[in-house]
């Protein structure tokens, strides 16, 4: 399969540009020029790696370490530094916080609704765009517009569009005798609205990945299926979907990582309300940190969410690898 044939040489090639065979032939002899060569080779690699490592440490490792540190501390607001260690107290507080547990549940519901919807729509639209028809290129370009809209702006604009008194959506629904619908003030509809806004924004991204995957499908296999008399449904079910499975999962993982940290659309559109109906976990953490200035507990929440996200992402990646090997 395309994916496998591309990854196989890469695995060998990552350790040395010369390849495994060359590496064996250059095994150093004690004290000889081979050892010097190896050390110089190693040193040069580290020199090239160093800038990236320094940047990564500064922008990723340090904030991560600092967040974990604060999660075990009481932050002194007078100096904005950890004042004293409080052990696991912040974590115990978080686990007893019904608001945090509710926000995890809300996030779960949001992910369970938004991700499958975006995947279905994304791949469905990609299939349609893959067929030759006039205006396909223009539509493909238009599809990218929502992706470049700033999330807070998207949330704010949709809030206006969904307003029962002034909004365009209710105006259109009113023409056919429906409404006015309280999109953002009903707890259930508010979550539906949030999912729809996020889907509007991110489905084009899935379309983009899916289109690339569909275009890379091997034509000879599809041709062989056609010769063997397979219909479109059989081709889709037995050939296309299995071949696309790693792409689908890869798109899912990328979207999962994006969706799990979503909070800006919720902030702009609903502020997590009504009540706690759309209080996704990152919004809850944001409010806890920035509004209530509870940095210790907010850091504990962030650390816990990070751990949960890492575990689930790891499982998804394992599943992806399994699917790649299976087909």
């Amino acid at each position: 399969m395309t994916t496998n044939t591309q990854t196989a040489p890469a695995r060998g090639g990552t350790s040395s540009p010369a390849g495994p065979g060359d590496r064996r032939s250059r095994r150093p002899r004690a004290g000889g020029p081979g050892l010097r060569h190896r050390w110089r080779d190693l040193a040069s690699r580290w020199v090239f790696l160093a800038p990236a490592l320094v940047i990564l440490a500064a922008v990723l490792a340090y904030p991560l370490f600092y967040t974990v540190w604060i999660s075990f501390s009481e932050l002194d607001l007078a100096t904005f530094t950890p004042a004293r260690s409080v052990g696991w107290m912040n974590y115990r507080t978080v686990l007893e916080d019904p608001g945090f547990l509710n926000s995890l549940k809300v996030t779960g519901v949001y992910l369970a609704l938004a991700l499958p919807l975006q995947m279905l729509l994304g791949f469905g639209i990609a299939f349609l765009l893959n067929v030759e028809w006039r205006g396909r290129g223009v539509l493909r370009a238009l599809f990218l517009i929502p992706m470049v809209v700033v999330p807070v702006v998207a949330g704010g604009v949709w809030k206006m569009l969904l307003d029962p008194l002034w909004g365009f959506v209710n105006y259109v629904l009113g023409l056919v005798g429906i409404g006015p619908v309280n999109w953002l003030s009903d707890p259930t509809l508010a979550m539906v609205s949030l999912v729809l806004i996020d889907t509007w924004r991110w489905t084009p991204f899935v379309v983009l990945i899916a289109s690339a995957g569909i275009m890379s499908l091997p034509g000879d296999v599809l041709e062989a299926a056609r010769v063997d008399g397979a219909g479109w449904w059989a081709t889709l079910r037995k050939i296309v979907l299995p071949l696309l499975a790693p792409v689908i999962l890869a798109a899912f993982i990328v979207r999962w990582l994006g969706a799990v940290k979503m909070f800006d659309i919720a902030l702009a559109a609903t502020k997590g309300g009504p009540g706690q109906a759309t209080d996704v976990v990152n919004l809850y953490i944001y409010e806890k940190a920035f509004r209530s200035l509870e940095f210790g507990t907010a850091s504990s929440m962030a650390t816990m969410v990070l751990a949960i996200t890492m575990v689930l992402t790891f499982l998804f990646l394992r599943l992806n690898r399994y699917l790649e090997k299976r087909w």
Partner: peptide, 17 residues
């Protein structure tokens, strides 16, 4: 900005009073 990636909160450097 760095912290926001994890915490969506920001923490400033400390200083002498």
């Amino acid at each position: 900005g760095g912290l926001a990636a994890v915490l969506t909160a920001s923490l400033a450097a400390c200083g002498s009073s």
